[in-house]
Nucleic acid binder design. Structure first.
Length: 788
DNA sequence: AACCCTCGAGTTCT
DNA sequence: CTCGAGGGTT
């Protein structure tokens, strides 16, 4: 029996030793990786490390969350979890020329209302790596996430923990409750070369460039592999911050990071004005080859935090920052041919087939030529030598033809095909459009394939297991015709298809090869199809592949109309009153549903068990849009503009009365207008449309939830929005106002209660001042909304 | 009518 | 990422 008192003492000693070792090892790591100033020999470090590992193995409860032993990697994850960023990770606007920089500087000075004075900019290098968010809570590293689409990324905590330069516990005493550190993960050029050497020796695939190597390492589900790759991290920005005041400038932020032990690039500088920016660019450009990491440009940010806030954002990019990119690497190669690809909408896109050439570390063999006009403008011909680059360092692009190298005799100029290369249908190019299209519709197997691919896509029905190859086979061997056929596939049919596909391709059927039928993939696919039966309404609408209906328009339809039943029967005029839906888009949607075949295909999907989720009553916001005047004007009757439709309505004309009694109300309208109206009404179809619209309007109105009546602080007040607000879009501001019972209108009059003016406000602001209407800025509006 | 911005559609390679 | 087109503003 051991003595309990001695046992206690031993445990206390172990606890102290673990703490001491953790602190010391972390100090050495920081000195080595961040300060570039090693404090002990590697062998000594390893000895301490092994001692800590042993202690932790004996007393697992003593392991602290910042223990360096956590950095060796953990067992593989099944997958990466999604992480929603507290503050979105935005992108930057790009500049390429001196002019772009001067323009940027001017916009900044205008935005800040500075005339003569030079602006202070924080300038830094733009690493060619991957943007990452590190979350620290009370000083401890909690989570790391990739940028993803900016709103949500993937949880790569286990992988990031293996990067030795990243502190698992922040240093110093100014520790925030919450801190999101934004920065770049990358691989140094030398480490990349060593890694590729190892890969080569091991007979493994080499990486094309340091960026891909870093990305590949970060995407490892097994963080023990990541731990063997030498990744680096440098911070350059901030997301959420809680518990400590925001530093007053970007340079102060980075200084603070240094005191916290977070690695920050040494290549940073505060410069003045456009001249300062250009000088920094030239300096870094000259030293680019000797920097240990790859960069694709430099970044400028207005230094003062306060000024940054004043400048605000345009859509997804801040107005206070600019990425000044180096010119993309270019290469010469030959055009072997120009093929035509047929897209989902029938768009016929010429694609240049190129002799393989390495551009920026990636071998390029194809490059889009966009459309007929583009090919002719650049005059690209088969056999030509062309200059290729990767636009934004990603997508290959033919810059121009080297005419001197054109073969003799000159090849003929490019000519768009007159028949679809896939289905033989004739090709049409609409007046005023740049794109030629195959007229075959779903008869064309290329378009059918694309329709399935779109339908199954991640942002649509998200059918797992249904990739390009299976779609092609399903369509080619005619196992599916319409979208709904997916839902009647069975294991037997899929396996039969596989056998036939193998036979057709001349490969030995796996059935023969292995003596039994492998069914895993087919089971997975069927499970994926089954799992897709309950899509959110907006994704289902998007998946249908209606022209001009993308993610955002589908969302508008779902939000405003609430259910598929209304969307599928809405005439164009009704769709036209929804935000961001104009004539073209409204017609496109109405035409889609007017097509009997489409309605049947839709019904077949519903009958197959596809049930859109999240259907609800139409939005209360629809009420104002359903006013007689608005709807009447939206129909698009010739010459019947909004003010005239208003006149008519004031005289008691309604959709119903027009439909019932024809053109007997238009006394007092200008003759030409009355004439056009009478003519329009003479068409029986139009009268029917009116009646249908009226009926649908009444039904929608009866379904609308009551307007949030009580608590309407802004009841009866009319607002006009103008200019750009710093932190919200006009639409968002309008939503806030309407939610509080206020009304938003387009033009300033005596009846206007308030004008909310942002920057670059124009004539509306002037008119408000003239009429003595109260003027608010964004803060003023928020204050008004906040008071009781 | 001339703009600015956003959205949709097409595309490359790993 | 890029282009073109659509929608909205000035």
């Amino acid at each position: 029996m051991t003595d309990p008192i001695n046992q206690d003492a031993a445990a206390r000693n172990a606890a102290q030793r673990v703490l001491a070792l953790t602190a010391e090892l972390n100090r050495h790591l920081h000195a080595y990786h961040v300060l570039d100033n090693p404090t002990i020999p590697d062998a000594e470090y390893d000895k301490l490390f092994v001692e800590l590992q042993a202690l932790e193995a004996a007393h697992p409860e003593l392991r602290t969350p910042d223990s360096p032993t956590l950095r060796v990697g953990a067992a593989p994850l099944p997958q990466f979890e999604q992480v929603t960023h507290t503050v979105p990770m935005l992108s930057l606007n790009n500049g390429f020329s001196d002019d772009d920089i001067v323009h940027f500087d001017r916009r900044v000075r205008e935005g800040l209302g500075l005339d003569g004075a030079e602006v202070d900019y924080a300038a830094e290098v733009k690493f060619d790596g991957l943007a990452i968010n590190l979350r620290y809570e009370n000083g401890l590293f909690i989570q790391a996430a990739t940028r993803g689409d900016g709103a949500t990324g993937e949880d790569v905590t286990a992988n990031i923990r293996t990067i030795s330069g990243i502190p698992l516990r922040l240093h110093g005493d100014k520790i925030p409750a919450v801190l999101d550190v934004r920065g770049e993960v990358m691989m140094f050029k030398a480490d990349f070369a060593r890694l590729n050497e190892r890969q080569r020796e091991a007979g493994q695939k080499e990486f094309a460039n340091p960026r891909n190597a870093a990305a590949g390492s970060l995407r490892q589900l097994d963080s023990r592999i990541t731990a063997q790759r030498k990744l680096r991290f440098y911070a350059y920005g901030i997301g959420a911050l809680d518990g400590v005041a925001m530093p007053v400038s970007h340079s102060a932020l980075l200084d603070w990071y240094e005191t916290l032990g977070i690695p920050v690039s040494k290549e940073r500088k505060v410069v003045q004005g456009a001249q300062g920016l250009l000088a920094y660019y030239a300096d870094i450009g000259a030293r680019r080859p000797v920097l240990p990491y790859e960069i694709d440009g430099v970044v400028y940010k207005v230094n003062a935090t306060e000024d940054q806030q004043e400048l605000g954002f345009v859509s997804r990019a801040p107005r206070f920052a600019l990425a000044h990119k180096f010119p993309a690497e270019e290469a010469l190669t030959q055009v072997l041919g120009i093929d035509i690809q047929v897209g989902r909408t029938g768009a016929m896109t010429p694609v240049a087939r190129l002799a393989p050439v390495s551009v920026g570390g990636v071998t390029v063999t194809n490059a889009t030529l966009h459309n007929e006009d583009e090919v002719l403008r650049k005059d690209v011909r088969v056999g030509d030598t062309v200059i290729v680059r990767r636009a934004g360092d990603v997508i290959p692009e033919v810059l121009s033809v080297v005419l001197e190298k054109r073969p003799e005799p000159a090849p003929p100029p490019f000519k768009m095909l007159e028949a679809c290369p896939v289905c033989g249908s004739h090709v049409v190019r609409e007046e005023g459009e740049a794109i030629a299209r195959c007229s075959g519709g779903l008869f064309c197997s290329a378009q059918r394939k694309e329709a399935f691919r779109h339908f199954a896509g991640r942002r649509m029905m998200d059918i797992e297991g249904l990739g390009e190859r299976y779609i092609d086979t399903l369509v080619e061997l005619e196992y599916v015709h319409g979208l709904a056929d997916l839902y009647s596939l069975t294991l037997d049919k899929l396996l039969e298809m596989k056998v036939r596909a193998d036979e057709r391709d001349g490969s030995t059927p796996e059935t023969v090869q292995q003596g039994k039928i492998p069914t895993k993939w087919a089971e997975n696919l069927l499970a994926g199809i089954e799992a897709s039966k309950r899509p959110p309404l907006e994704r289902f609408l998007f998946a249908l592949g209606i022209r001009h209906v993308g993610e955002s328009t589908a969302k508008t339809l779902a939000e405003w109309l609430g259910s598929l039943a209304y969307v599928r029967q809405a005439p164009a005029a009704l769709l036209r009153v929804l935000p961001d839906i104009g004539g073209t888009v409204a017609e496109s949607i109405a035409d889609f549903f007017a097509e009997e075949k489409n309605q049947q295909a839709l019904q077949a999907l519903l009958d197959a068990g596809v049930t859109p989720q999240g259907e609800h009553a139409p939005s209360a916001k629809l009420r104002t849009q359903l006013e007689q005047t608005t709807l009447l004007a939206a129909i698009g009757i010739p010459k019947l503009t909004e003010p005239r439709s208003k006149q008519l309505v004031e005289r008691g004309v309604t959709l119903a009365s027009l439909a019932a009694q024809g053109a007997s109300f238009h006394a007092g309208l200008p003759a030409a207008v009355a004439e056009a109206l009478a003519q329009w009404l003479a068409d029986e179809g139009n009268v029917k449309l009116l009646a249908q619209l009226d009926a649908l309007r009444n039904e929608l109105l009866s379904q609308l939830p009551e307007m949030p009546a009580a608590g309407g602080k802004l009841d009866g007040k009319t607002f006009v929005l103008t200019g750009t607000l710093p932190n919200m879009s006009r639409d968002e501001a309008a939503e806030l106002i309407e939610a509080a019972g206020g009304k938003v209108s387009g033009s300033v009059s005596k009846k206007t209660g308030y004008v909310v003016a942002g920057s670059d406000a124009g004539s509306k602001l002037a008119k408000a001042q003239e009429l003595g209407v109260a003027i608010l800025d964004e803060a003023g509006l928020l204050a008004l909304l906040a008071q009781d």
